[in-house]
């Protein structure tokens, strides 16, 4: 039985790791975020990004956007596991269900004087970031876009006096007329 392998190494072939963006419509009730986050940690799934906020106050609904990575079999598991949580109304795999838009917002604080200050403003302009706070020695920029664009902007701010970054994580929605 020298060729025996662990049941946990489930496949002899290596499945590709995919990145999927899921939208989950849930009842806005206490503990729902812990339920979702606990499911991911308890079953060893990855969370690259997770955002949640109430989207329909009257109906008491919140929308969770979660970006995760895994093999196709794991992604399928994640969707089924989310789907069987009692307060979950709907799970949509935006990545596999057609084109969708993903956006992230970041607040980026930069402190500096002289040429650094001018260069920061110039870069912000190129990235269409807005200055939402300003002192004689600092700016807070608001930037919106894909995660890659936000990453690139933050990288450029590093040598210019980057102090703090706050990011929302990814929110996403399907293109076209349909909804959850």
């Amino acid at each position: 039985m020298a060729n025996s392998s662990s049941v946990y190494e489930t496949q002899s072939r290596v499945d590709p790791i995919e990145r999927h963006t899921l939208a989950v419509l849930v009842d806005n009730e206490p503990g729902i975020l812990a339920r979702v986050a606990g499911l991911f940690s308890g079953r060893g799934y990855n969370i690259d990004s997770l955002t949640v906020a109430e989207t329909d106050h009257m109906a008491g609904l919140s929308r969770i956007t979660v970006v995760t990575t895994g093999t196709p079999m794991i992604i399928e598991q994640i969707k089924s596991q989310l789907g069987r949580l009692v307060p979950v109304h709907d799970v949509a795999d935006l990545t596999s269900e057609g084109p969708h838009v993903e956006r992230e917002l970041a607040l980026v604080k930069v402190a500096g004087r002289g040429e650094h200050r001018v260069e920061a403003l110039r870069t912000a302009d190129i990235f269409r970031a807005r200055a939402v706070d300003s002192t004689t020695e600092s700016f807070v920029f608001e930037i919106t876009g894909s995660s890659e664009k936000v990453d690139a902007f933050i990288d450029l701010m590093k040598p210019l006096g980057l102090v703090d970054v706050a990011r929302t994580g990814v929110v996403a929605i399907a293109r076209g007329a349909g909804g959850l």
Partner: peptide
């Protein structure tokens, strides 16, 4: 006579 592999032992 059976030998259990190291991977098997870990289960």
């Amino acid at each position: 006579t059976a030998e259990v592999s190291d991977a098997g032992k870990a289960l």
